[in-house]
């Protein structure tokens, strides 16, 4: 594993306060989404990033608006972190017509092309090669765009992961892979079914990618490695792999209480919760408690407003059902 970190200008306090706000927004949004599940307002399934917010927030802070995010079915946080407003995201979870995709995608497929969120993909590993394709397009067209592709530790044992890493390396693509290693695949500990200790980083170095390990519960650390990797990609120096160690506070999905995990392990990671950690750091850096309380209140207001607006959304109409299979807007397969 190597780390050649180009100089990344450190964040000032205002930028760090913004990073704190993003983390809180992701946390409070998903807590609200979970509450709405319990009220049976959110249908289907959902995969929360509670506990992993520092990764989505830290990487997004290092991206330009024109860069691309490729997320997984655990994609609420990544979508919001790119600046997509809460209301359409929550409305999408509720299956309302004011949803991000008018209810046609749902929790696992959040997409907002205008914000550079190029899809949330629910087949493990599939989006790694797709992110390579976007990166290839940027390289071909000579733009300075970078594709950032998030995935979990469980994705590292599927073929598409390996095909994509090799592909990115041989074409020297401007892509940054970010493995959110939360230690548990779905219900099985990743190390129990994986031949190496660091499932993404160890493999990536074998493919010649710049390979970086980072504390995924430290938003500043995540930001710094992401900024460096993105800068390298933008400069034409090729792909990187960031493996960010983290932990999900809840189960794999809505239906999973996560009871397979030892209590002591859960407690250990709850103590490393990225948000209280960042709160403490900001106070040490000179932020005031009042400032932080005001940020918290502001986020609560945003979540409350999004909740009202999402609930007020209409039910998608039949007109949407047969729309947009094809680029002409329709779904006709015959004349």
């Amino acid at each position: 594993m190597t780390t050649t970190t180009p100089a990344v200008s450190p964040m000032d306090l205002d930028e760090k306060l913004a990073l704190y706000r993003t983390q809180l927004a992701l946390r409070f949004f998903e807590q609200r989404a979970y509450d709405m599940f319990l009220e049976n307002l959110v249908k289907g399934t959902s995969h929360l990033s509670l506990g992993q917010e520092a990764i989505a927030a830290g990487v997004a802070a290092a991206m330009k608006p024109t860069d691309w995010t490729f997320a997984t079915y655990r994609g609420h946080a990544h979508t919001l972190a790119r600046g997509v407003p809460m209301t359409p995201v929550l409305a999408e979870l509720l299956g309302r017509s004011n949803g991000l995709m008018a209810g046609k995608g749902g929790s696992m497929h959040l997409t907002s092309v205008e914000h550079g969120v190029m899809g949330s993909y629910a087949i493990i590993g599939a989006h790694l090669p797709i992110a390579c394709g976007a990166a290839w397009s940027a390289q071909f067209r000579g733009t300075d765009q970078v594709a950032v592709c998030f995935f979990g530790d469980g994705s590292t044992n599927i073929g598409a992961f390996h095909e994509a890493l090799n592909f990115a390396a041989i074409w020297k693509l401007p892509v940054v892979f970010v493995c959110e290693n939360n230690l548990w695949m779905e219900y099985t500990r990743t190390t129990e079914v994986t031949a190496v200790e660091n499932p993404a980083a160890d493999r990536a170095s074998a493919y010649g990618l710049e390979s970086i390990m980072v504390d995924g519960n430290d938003a500043d650390a995540v930001y710094e490695v992401a900024a460096a990797a993105i800068a390298r990609a933008r400069a034409g120096e090729g792909p990187s792999m960031i493996e960010a160690k983290t932990y999900r506070h809840g189960g794999h999905s809505r239906a999973d209480p996560g009871k397979y995990r030892p209590d002591s392990e859960v407690a250990e990671w709850l103590a490393k919760d990225p948000i209280p950690r960042y709160h403490t750091r900001l106070l040490e850096l000179g932020a005031t408690e009042d400032q932080l309380v005001e940020i918290e209140r502001d986020v609560v207001r945003e979540v409350d407003l999004a909740t009202e607006e999402a609930k007020a959304g209409g039910v998608p109409g039949e007109d949407l059902l047969m729309k947009d299979v094809w680029a002409d807007g329709g779904s006709s397969w015959r004349n």
């Binding site: 190029m118 090669p129 095909e163 041989i170």
Partner: peptide, 18 residues
């Protein structure tokens, strides 16, 4: 390379970006 998922994934990512 002999990587059909990478070939078609790359085609898809390239198509969605112009």
């Amino acid at each position: 390379p002999i990587s059909e998922q990478a070939i078609l994934g790359a085609a898809m990512g390239a198509a969605m970006t112009g």
